[in-house]
Simulated scan of single mutants.
Amino acid sequence: MAKRKITNTLALAVLGLLQEQPMHPYEMATTLRERYKGGSFKINTGSLYDTVAALVRHGWIESVETGRDGRRPERTVYAPTATGQTEFVGWIDELVRVPVPEYPKFLAAVAYLGALGPERATDALTERAGHLTTRIEEAESALAATVGAGTVPRLFMIEVEYGLHTWRAELDWVRHTLAEITGGTLSWPRVERTATGWTWTEPTA
């Protein structure tokens, strides 16, 4: 498989929007935020314009119109090229078919949860549960305001549904682990350093 010239997934968001209609970058950024795409892509004005420039440079999108609305700065409207359309579909197909290691930071931290000790681990997980609850509520509101209101087809927001499933599953795990810590069923071994290294023993009941 040939190495893809563009690997920043924000390019997928740009190409995806241009499936609907030609757009200028400001409209792209506004639409992505309205559709709660910040949970799927890292969206900021600078990176979006850099991504658009890269897509133009590699011939994946092209300018179809340049205009000015009143006293606002001149804006360039873009549309996908045949090459860009082929790359977009092929990239989506590849990402859907083949799971790849993504190395989540939370998973790395959980691997060493024991280093926090039970009290600090409880405090950290409790705070995470609060953040997850807020994220879930925001996503549910976004779906209700778009798909639920009939302003956006469900397929255009389906990754938010996927995100909700993963966040709810994570919240369930966090709450279950908290219950184990506070209930004493997830014990913290006693760790001691010896002349030959570290040793650990399970606490006695």
Rank of each mutant, 00 (worst) to 15 (best):
69 D>F: 15
91 W>Y: 14
117 G>P: 01
89 V>T: 15
108 A>Q: 00
116 L>K: 00
152 V>R: 08
154 R>D: 15
82 A>N: 08
81 T>V: 01
153 P>G: 07
142 A>K: 01
118 P>H: 03
116 L>D: 00
148 G>I: 01
88 F>E: 00
97 R>F: 07
146 T>G: 01
115 A>F: 06
69 D>E: 15
85 Q>G: 13
167 W>S: 09
154 R>P: 09
142 A>D: 02
69 D>W: 15
56 V>K: 11
95 L>W: 09
134 T>W: 09
132 L>W: 00
93 D>E: 15
104 P>Q: 01
87 E>H: 13
135 R>W: 12
110 V>P: 00
57 R>W: 09
150 G>I: 03
117 G>F: 01
56 V>M: 07
142 A>V: 03
143 L>Y: 02
147 V>Q: 02
121 A>E: 04
130 G>I: 01
142 A>G: 03
108 A>S: 03
118 P>T: 03
173 W>F: 07
126 T>W: 07
161 E>L: 08
122 T>Y: 04
170 E>Q: 08
56 V>C: 10
128 R>P: 06
68 R>N: 06
131 H>M: 05
121 A>L: 06
107 L>E: 10
83 T>H: 10
59 G>R: 04
104 P>F: 02
164 L>R: 02
98 V>W: 14
59 G>W: 04
108 A>D: 00
117 G>Y: 02
102 E>M: 12
108 A>L: 00
159 E>W: 13
168 R>C: 03
54 A>D: 08
167 W>L: 15
57 R>A: 15
58 H>V: 10
83 T>R: 11
127 E>L: 12
114 G>P: 00
118 P>A: 05
143 L>T: 02
135 R>A: 14
106 F>D: 06
121 A>F: 03
105 K>E: 15
137 E>N: 10
97 R>I: 08
112 Y>W: 08
164 L>I: 06
131 H>G: 03
141 S>L: 11
154 R>C: 10
74 E>Q: 11
86 T>Q: 14
120 R>K: 13
105 K>N: 14
146 T>E: 01
130 G>Q: 01
83 T>D: 13
140 E>L: 07
95 L>A: 13
59 G>Q: 04
91 W>N: 09
